Amino acid sequence: MNTAEQQTAAADTKITKGTAAESPKKQIVPGLALVATLAGAAFFLAQQSWFQRMSMGPLTLAIVLGIVAGNTVLRNQPIILANGIFLAKGLLLRLGIILYGFGITFQQISAVGVNGVLLDATMIASTFAMAQLIGRRWMKMEKETTILIGAGASICGAAAVLATEPVVKGRSDQVSVAVATVVIFGTISMFLYPLMYPLLNMTEHQYGIYVGSTIHEVAQVVAAGQAISTEAANSAIIEKMVRVMMLAPFLLILANIRLPSRSANAGVGKKERQKLVIPWFAVLFLAAAAVNSVIAMPSMATNAIRHVDLFLLSMAMTALGLSTQVSAIRRAGLRPLILAGCLFAFLTVGGYVLNRLLIS
Score class of each variant (00 low, 15 high):
residue 19 T to A: 13
residue 20 A to T: 10
residue 21 A to E: 09
residue 22 E to Y: 13
residue 22 E to N: 10
residue 22 E to P: 00
residue 23 S to K: 15
residue 23 S to E: 15
residue 24 P to S: 10
residue 25 K to W: 14
residue 27 Q to L: 15
residue 27 Q to M: 14
residue 28 I to V: 14
residue 28 I to R: 14
residue 28 I to L: 15
residue 29 V to C: 00
residue 29 V to Y: 09
residue 30 P to W: 07
residue 33 A to T: 14
residue 33 A to N: 01
residue 33 A to F: 12
residue 35 V to W: 01
residue 35 V to E: 06
residue 36 A to I: 10
residue 36 A to W: 04
residue 36 A to N: 02
residue 37 T to F: 13
residue 38 L to T: 06
residue 38 L to H: 06
residue 39 A to P: 05
residue 40 G to H: 05
residue 43 F to N: 03
residue 44 F to M: 08
residue 44 F to V: 10
residue 45 L to H: 08
residue 45 L to W: 04
residue 46 A to Q: 03
residue 47 Q to G: 12
residue 47 Q to R: 15
residue 49 S to C: 00
residue 50 W to P: 00
residue 51 F to G: 00
residue 51 F to M: 08
residue 51 F to T: 05
residue 53 R to P: 00
residue 54 M to R: 12
residue 56 M to F: 14
residue 57 G to S: 09
residue 58 P to T: 11
residue 58 P to I: 01
residue 59 L to G: 02
residue 60 T to H: 04
residue 60 T to D: 00
residue 61 L to D: 05
residue 62 A to E: 06
residue 62 A to S: 15
residue 63 I to E: 09
residue 63 I to K: 08
residue 63 I to D: 11
residue 64 V to M: 12
residue 64 V to E: 01
residue 64 V to R: 03
residue 65 L to S: 10
residue 65 L to T: 08
residue 65 L to Y: 10
residue 68 V to E: 03
residue 69 A to C: 13
residue 69 A to W: 05
residue 69 A to N: 08
residue 71 N to C: 10
residue 71 N to K: 03
residue 73 V to M: 13
residue 76 N to A: 13
residue 76 N to C: 00
residue 77 Q to R: 15
residue 78 P to V: 05
residue 78 P to I: 07
residue 79 I to D: 12
residue 80 I to F: 07
residue 80 I to G: 07
residue 82 A to D: 12
residue 83 N to P: 11
residue 84 G to Q: 04
residue 84 G to D: 08
residue 84 G to V: 08
residue 85 I to T: 10
residue 86 F to S: 14
residue 87 L to G: 02
residue 89 K to P: 00
residue 89 K to C: 12
residue 90 G to D: 12
residue 90 G to L: 07
residue 91 L to A: 14
residue 91 L to M: 13
residue 92 L to N: 05
residue 92 L to W: 06
residue 92 L to S: 05
residue 94 R to V: 06
residue 94 R to M: 09
residue 94 R to P: 01
residue 94 R to H: 09
residue 95 L to E: 02
residue 96 G to P: 08
residue 96 G to V: 10
residue 97 I to G: 02
residue 97 I to Q: 00
residue 97 I to W: 02
residue 97 I to F: 03
residue 98 I to S: 02
residue 100 Y to I: 01
residue 101 G to Q: 07
residue 102 F to R: 07
residue 105 T to N: 10
residue 105 T to E: 12
residue 106 F to W: 15
residue 107 Q to G: 14
residue 108 Q to G: 04
residue 109 I to Q: 03
residue 109 I to R: 04
residue 109 I to W: 08
residue 110 S to M: 11
residue 111 A to H: 11
residue 111 A to D: 13
residue 111 A to C: 02
residue 112 V to M: 10
residue 113 G to F: 09
residue 113 G to V: 09
